[in-house]
Design a protein around this nucleic acid. Structure first.
Lengths: 290, 290
DNA sequence: TATTATCTATAGTTTATAGTTATAGCTATG
DNA sequence: CATAGCTATAACTATAAACTATAGATAATA
């Protein structure tokens, strides 16, 4: 869609009179007429109608008019900012510790190498990622939320299973997959209460009718694994965590796999930096599986 | 800024080679060269440089490239939506009861008459207007917040004084202006605790060292005025409220006037509907004063 | 009812712009 | 030092965008 057409249409839609609008544009009336006609042909929809000899815009015409206005305003603002040497705002990517540690490394590396945008990483926990997006503290988020809040757009990134980790010598390590019942009375190392990971575990254990034996509350995957390593109990972590070779990891049933999504504000006009980061994230979505 | 220039620049910036890019665009290399030159001349800044015989984009060139991408994406999305007959989203205006009752009437009337956008009004109270904007439940808000939250753009609308209202026969009605001290021991009708109006009053009375004698807690200007009318006490309301002729309104010192602002999300690309509503609001910003 | 004014829309012509070819000039490479 | 591969400019050409003229349509006016 040519910008000239939109500019002409803007003037025309103000006058609703080819003769006057053409004068304002310093071109002849027929010249304007063909411009509007070309715009109409391109769009493929009638943009104005005649009632007697009064012209009026169709609803599509009204929409084009609004689009034309926004387009020009956007362009003017951008050019003004460019000439004022306005600094490029860095892309702010929000995610939890786990995502940054095990999921996003290669994507971030790739983005920094190929994209020309400054990058800033925001460490968030739980649902505060949504607040960060809404308040503009972050432009993009990665998280495994269960429900999509209003006004947020989700793009599926990868699916991560949950595994039970324990010392290799542990009797449960002989099993191939573990059920919540098997963990009855086992001392567990899990995060404290408001964390979503804790909630998921509690829910699954409740459903299975198994009571939790919390040996130690510890947040953060690395910490949890460290305490398992020290023999203080066993734990449930994402299968994308780097499991030390001294530990065994076994699949657990009845705990839903985590679906990681890319989160962005719906209809914040698609920023180029977002686009490039999303491309990088998708490229390396499953790198951790190898 | 012509859309053709941007389209050509996009291809050029991918190749960084006039010869190849021109082939892709099915024009000759010199033709592309002058197009890029025209874009550069229009912008007034160099968009690329040569290092030996390798070309690379300047930071300004990178920004233009991102802008060009976004421009095309935006245009494509718009056209696709238009052809799919996607319904126009209504403009959602959020404000409190007081604003809707006394401040916004004529502006809303004007908008509905002149603007071609569907309108939807959202009744909010207190700071939840910010949440409504951030979550996309509202596109525009009107409120008299004391502080501007991050990511919100404010435009000053009008200034409203606070007045004490009482029956005309009340002894205080003889005064021209009233101080908080004068209200010592007077039974007051004011909103309950979390309301900002209550907080403002409490703060002013604390500063003046006067204790509040709360006769009745009632939210909403109309209700408050009604109870004053019924002789249950006196109250403090905005001067833009419709004061019944049976009551007297007197200015009060030490209570700061309320500054009403238009609120919108910073850098949500300026929607045409927002623009028109803001124009309408400004046009009738002070209508209530007459 | 005929006449005029005002405006849209189309046709034919002219002008301006965008495209082409040719080539000079620069730079890395064998 | 010759050559390949590219940018950038000039001179020329084709195309598209402007113009003039005017037919057609509608409402106001004599």
């Amino acid at each position: 869609m040519r910008s000239e057409w939109l500019d002409s249409f803007l003037v025309f839609s103000d006058c609703l009179n080819f003769t006057h609008a053409a004068e304002l544009l310093h071109i002849s009336q027929p010249a304007l007429h063909v411009k509007i006609k070309k715009l109409e042909d391109h769009v493929g929809l009638p943009l104005y109608r005649k009632q007697g000899r009064q012209l009026y815009l169709t609803p599509h015409g009204e929409q084009i008019r609004a689009f034309a206005r926004e387009t020009r305003e956007r362009s003017d603002l951008f050019l003004a900012g460019l000439r004022d040497n306005k600094q490029l705002e860095p892309l702010k990517l929000a995610a939890g510790e786990g995502s940054f540690l095990y999921l996003l490394g290669p994507a971030i590396k790739h983005f920094r190498k190929t994209a020309k945008f400054p990058l800033s990483l925001v460490n968030t926990r739980g649902t505060s990622i949504i607040d960060a997006l809404r308040s503009g503290q972050a432009h993009l988020g990665v998280s495994a939320l269960q429900t999509v809040p209003a006004g947020i757009k989700q793009t599926r990134l990868t699916v991560v299973d949950q595994v039970v980790v324990m010392p290799k010598a542990h009797p449960l390590a002989k099993k191939k997959t573990i059920k919540p019942v098997d963990l009855h009375n086992e001392p567990l190392i899990i995060p404290p209460r408001p964390q979503p990971h804790r909630e998921t575990i509690e829910q699954a254990f409740n459903t299975a009718g198994v009571s939790l034996n919390v040996a130690l509350e510890a947040g953060g995957w690395e910490m949890m694994l460290q305490f398992v390593n020290l023999g203080m109990g066993i734990s449930i972590v994402n299968s994308c965590c780097h499991i030390p070779s001294t530990l065994a990891a076994r699949k657990i049933t009845e705990l839903p796999p985590l679906v990681y999504h890319i989160l962005e504000l719906r209809d914040a006009w698609y920023k180029e930096a977002n686009r490039e980061m999303i491309a990088a994230l998708k490229k390396y979505a499953d790198h951790w599986k190898q």
